[in-house]
Amino acid sequence: MPSAIHTRPRDTRSPLSALPGARPSRRGLLAGGLGAAALLGLTACGADDSGGPSTAGGSGAAGWSFTDDRGRTVRLSRRPKRIAFLTDTVGAALWAAGLHPVAATDSGQGIVPAVKPDWSGVAKIYSADKGVRIEALAQARPDLLIDAVQPDGTLQVASQLPAVTKIAPVVGLSTYRSIEQIAGTADRLTGSLGVRLADTGAKTRYEEAGSRLRKAVAADKELRVGFVFGIDKNTIGVMNPKTWAVLKTVSALGMRLLPVPGGADNTYSQAVSWENVPSLPVDLLVWAVSDPLPDNPLWKRTPAVRAGQLWKPDLSSWYAYSWENFTVLLDGLATHVQSAHAGVGPRTTS
């Protein structure tokens, strides 16, 4: 907004979450978007985590301790019983693993509902400015807080950390990893908290789906897969394989993914103009957002789309990092990889 003044207060205040990495839409950026949908967990950085657990007093042989993904160890005199989830992604993984919190966030992006949590007796502590309602958190009287860790090693709640650590110590879980690591850490944490896995077969089913996908990928090694989403009316975004938990997981299973040139491990995606979409060197396209499929005339001209090698999964399973959701996802991918043929898309980008 140019300028100014007056007429458009909203523009300077600006909104919500973002779609970084993607191309700009000022609004898109500022506000939530897929960015949000996708990433919900990835807020703030900045302030370093000065405190660690503030109540680290405890110790004693009967105490409880846990070393988190930042390498910090939280020690408490007894096993914590009242847990609070400070972000959706980590919360969803832990809800799915059977942990019932006293307070949790749900920013309304469908990530938490995807694991069908039971909210009875749980305080909602999400604040629409993307933070946590500290008073409500304090009122829930938790003795352990769990938050997501950013790629740079800081907690998502960073800007509120000084206040939050006065309530209880924080454990950080990283969601920038493959599903095995994310759900694995969640299982380790719930185990140490004495929670029984609600569904013990889930991990086994996930592993079976993983091996099905691995086999399907191995059968056609030339097949190139692109995960894309709409950024704005002019461009689509190609997801960076080095950033997303989903893409890290499938790439570990051998899938050949459309690379993002120059993409660091913390960029979301590369924006590609619709003019260049038909030239993307991909054979199978995955439309990885909840938006409807695009109706741009160039979409129908894209070779993979014309060949019907296209999948639009149910997005709720994407950012809720549970064995069960990823089983659904890997199964769907395996089916589409099996039916797709390599060599449909152009050889290289022109």
Binding site: R13, S159, N266
Partner: peptide, 30 residues
Amino acid sequence: LTSLTAYLLTRASLYEAQDAQIWLIGSLNS
């Protein structure tokens, strides 16, 4: 400058962009 801000946000990594947006919202929560 507004254009420049929008452009900078597109250059940001995901968590930096989120951090910037929290600032841009202008909240007294923290």
